[in-house]
């Protein structure tokens, strides 16, 4: 079980992560049934505090909270007081006054979720739904869930599973959370990217680094493609979209090199034709739609573990 907040994949132990995934599996089964709604979080209020647009993540958290009968308030920066320059502190104190039990925060500044949790601005449980170029822990959980679902060898944990994470590692919160979680669960992770898109200091991470996609693709079990932002091109991280796509995109010829049981993942939204070709995205190996579906179950599990009991200090 996890307690308090979920700010980083490093908040999870191997045991608590596997526990969350088991809970998510149970919840997925129940919500596959005729009645998708559970009464568990009736009377709790979950605020989706989104300072960046991310419809996918927001609706995933929203449906997770609603399936557990929590009340959901969506607070997005656009068209709100935030766009008029209100500080994170004032926004948090407002939500506190409104009785939020949990705040799901997406913010462009790395560490915003941790600031919310560490300061006295708000007492609610904080769930990091993506902070700047730092982390996105529920994405890593749903990715681990999806890998376990599809790879027979990963019944217990991810020992021996070889995962390639390909693309803009430097700016990717998905990559950071996945490196932490997947290696904790026993996976062997290789990061594939041009050197411009790898952070200085990456050599301290428990991963293999490669600049060459083709050398790595043949014996991997999972290939996770990261979204590439086109504006990176203007900052000379790579010369052109065509060159990036040719060297680091998942195209048909690379798809054919994958082993029979390997799966293709992408956190979405995809740039079809840039980091992933349309054929790859729609191939039988692609589990991208499952990732979206599993996201709801995993987020239900997180909300249940953080909100399902009495607040700390009020337990009988």
């Amino acid at each position: 079980m996890i307690t308090g907040h979920l700010l980083s994949a490093s908040d999870l132990t191997k045991e608590s992560a596997l526990g969350l995934l088991a809970t998510a599996k149970e919840l997925a089964q129940i919500t596959d049934g005729p009645n998708k709604k559970l009464p568990t979080l009736r009377g709790k209020t979950v605020v989706n505090l989104f300072f960046e647009d991310s419809t996918r993540t927001r609706i995933s958290f929203e449906s997770a909270a609603k399936r557990l009968s929590a009340d959901v308030i969506n607070f997005s920066a656009k068209g709100s007081s935030v766009s008029k320059g209100e500080s994170l502190k004032d926004t948090a104190q407002t939500l506190q006054a409104m009785g939020a039990d949990a705040v799901v925060i997406r913010h462009s500044s790395s560490g915003a979720a941790k600031r919310l949790a560490d300061t006295q601005w708000i007492q609610a449980a904080v769930i990091n739904a993506g902070d700047g170029t730092h982390e996105h822990p529920t994405q890593a959980l749903l990715d681990a869930f999806t890998i376990k679902q599809h790879l027979k060898s990963s019944e217990k944990d991810l020992s021996g599973v070889k995962v390639l994470i390909v693309g803009d590692i430097l700016h990717s919160r998905v990559a950071r959370s996945n490196v932490i979680l997947l290696t904790k669960l026993g996976a062997k992770v290789t990061l594939v990217a041009p050197p411009t898109l790898l952070p200085v200091g990456v050599n301290d991470w428990p991963v293999k680094i490669s600049y060459n996609f083709d050398e790595e693709i043949e014996d991997c079990d999972v290939v996770m493609m990261l979204r590439i932002q086109l504006e990176r091109m203007n900052d000379s991280f790579f010369p052109s979209a065509q060159e990036y796509s040719k060297r680091y995109g998942l195209n048909t010829s690379r798809l054919q090199k994958l082993s029979k049981s390997a799966i293709v993942m992408h956190p979405g939204p995809m740039n079809r034709g840039l980091e992933i070709s349309a054929e790859s995205a729609d191939d039988l190996k692609s589990v991208i739609i499952d990732q979206v579906k599993n996201g709801v179950a995993v987020r239900m599990a997180v909300l249940y573990e953080l909100l399902g009991g009495a607040p700390i200090g009020e337990q009988r």
Binding site: P199, V200, G201
Partner: peptide
């Protein structure tokens, strides 16, 4: 840039000041 570029900035995802 927000902080020293190195091991810590890589991990915590803040733009580095080399």
């Amino acid at each position: 840039a927000q902080m020293n570029e190195g091991s810590v900035s890589a991990r915590i995802g803040l733009p580095g000041w080399p």
